[in-house]
Amino acid sequence: MKTAAALLVLLFGGLLVYASLEFPAWGDPMAPASRHVSPHYIERSLAETSVPNIVTAVLADYRGYDTMFETIVIFTAGVACLFLLRIFGRRSSESRLYRHLPTGITLRISRGGAVPLSSKEFERIDLQWVPYSVVVRTTCRLIVPFSQLFALYVIAHGHHSPGGGFQGGVILGASIILFAIANNLRASLAWFSEKLAVLLCGLGVSIYVATGALSFLLGGNFLDYGTLSKPFAMGAVAARSLGILMVEIGVGITVMAVMVHLYYGLASAGRHDEGL
């Protein structure tokens, strides 16, 4: 089995190496990939969209449809994770651990037992609980606001520097996941609830589609942001850059919400109760 697999893989690799002998040399400016539409993008995108970052311009304007359905792919992944994993109710959790804060005693309440209601005296802790590290929590508290600010910068400044909705959304999601890892899943859920995550998944896609539909209603093609110049009182080229920003914000919201939702689902095996 292993030998057969190794032979198969070597065969594929050998065929690919053989094919690569005909490929253009690395870094060749006249390679076929760099001659078709790419010169148009490089030479015309600033004049046509007023966005200096060509990647952003191509992503959200020239290939707007592609990115829209890419966003829907992410949304679908979030929804698929919800349907695959989510378990409602608490029939699966066998027992719970509570710590009595004044005395420091840990109580194990087995299945069916009465659960303390007052949260002032009792603190719920995970079954596989490890003592919190003050260093980790404090560092997390310091890092999270700055990483979120940086994420917003990456989204908003994606026109002029490397960045955009996908990158900024991932950083925004990572900040919330960092909070969940440094504290626990319940603290994170109290801050950024599952309902909010699912709502934002859909909201981001809706913003994207609504931007496309708005330019459609104003008399242009779907996702033809040039027509946004009428309601926003700006030139057609500047309106394209505005349309790209709106679309990127939608992408960022969806990516953030899906990242967080995937983490919630995977870390707790769908129970959203206790996990990593």
Partner: peptide, 17 residues
């Protein structure tokens, strides 16, 4: 060439999904 960067930006996201 910006085009491979655009395509792979979305491909990375699909890979994560």
């Amino acid at each position: 060439n910006p085009l491979p960067h655009v395509l792979m930006l979305t491909a990375i996201v699909v890979a994560v999904s």
